[in-house]
């Protein structure tokens, strides 16, 4: 097996009042989906933002292996280099699509932006790539020139996926991506994401409070409580044979449909 895309050890972000995330260790390989679950305030989103370099870590190490096999220590990266990696090697899908999209420009421009940032200039080609990606996320190419503000919430979320995946990143961070979607749109989103992971071998770290989503998408799960990982392992093992009292509580609280 090749080396992990991401190796995290001893990572901490301390807000000072006991809030934050502490003692985080895990490795993530290409093609893996890792879910982070836990109640509100357990530090899930803080961990995600710290991993992605959006928040400065207080201690520990996050090593990222880029597509050329070079290692980068993300906690010590200069801002310019972090931005370059964020554009070319990562994606970040936010819970509210409006935070992750540029609402004032067309859908096509939203998808093309990262390609242009990487130096692509050919207008016709950019437009064609953007149209293909809209179709991949099941938005008609006729909507290319429409602004995202004219899209439904589910379409905006899919547009955000296209915008993030167009540069074929190695690693995508997702913060509650299905949070605001109704269930039929959520099913479509899960199917889409599963196919994209399978086809392109990207690695995904997803924060979710939905254990059903974790079971369907993620091979591995971290359970967080009060800023710490209380249980880590295969998703089906954690859901079917949870060990920690908090994991047992979480699993026993699922509504059976």
């Amino acid at each position: 097996m090749s080396q992990p895309v991401l190796s995290v050890s001893g990572l901490a972000k301390d807000y000072g009042n006991g809030q934050g995330c502490f003692d985080i260790d895990f490795e993530l390989y290409a093609g893996e989906v890792l879910c982070i679950v836990g109640e509100s305030g357990s530090g899930k989103s803080t961990l995600l933002s710290t991993l992605a370099g959006r928040l400065r870590a207080d201690s520990g190490s996050v090593r990222f292996c880029d597509r050329d096999g070079r290692q980068h220590e993300l906690t010590e990266l200069a801002e310019a280099e972090r931005r370059r990696l964020a554009r070319s090697e990562w994606g970040f899908v936010t819970q509210h699509a409006r935070d992750g999209l540029r609402m004032g420009v067309s859908a096509g421009a939203n998808v093309s932006e990262r390609l242009m940032a990487l130096g692509q200039r050919h207008y016709g080609q950019l437009r064609e790539t953007a149209a293909q990606w809209l179709e991949k996320v099941e938005i008609s190419r006729e909507r290319l020139d429409d602004r995202p503000s004219a899209f439904s919430g589910g379409m905006q979320q899919r547009l955000q996926i296209a915008r993030n995946l167009v540069t074929q990143p190695r690693l995508v961070f997702m913060d509650e991506p299905t949070g605001g979607l109704d269930v039929s749109v959520q099913a479509r989103f899960l199917d889409l994401l599963r196919r994209l992971v399978h086809d392109s071998g990207i690695a995904v770290i997803m924060v979710t409070h939905d254990l059903g989503v974790a079971r369907l998408l993620a091979q591995r799960t971290l359970v967080m409580q009060r800023g710490r990982v209380v249980e880590a392992g295969l998703t089906d093992q954690i859901l079917d044979d949870p060990q920690h009292p908090y994991s047992q509580l979480l699993v026993s609280s699922i509504l059976q449909a």
Binding site: L234, D236, Q237, D240, Q243
Partner: peptide
């Protein structure tokens, strides 16, 4: 059976 599959620890 589930232990063999590592579904149970």
């Amino acid at each position: 059976l589930k232990a063999l599959y590592a579904n149970y620890l």
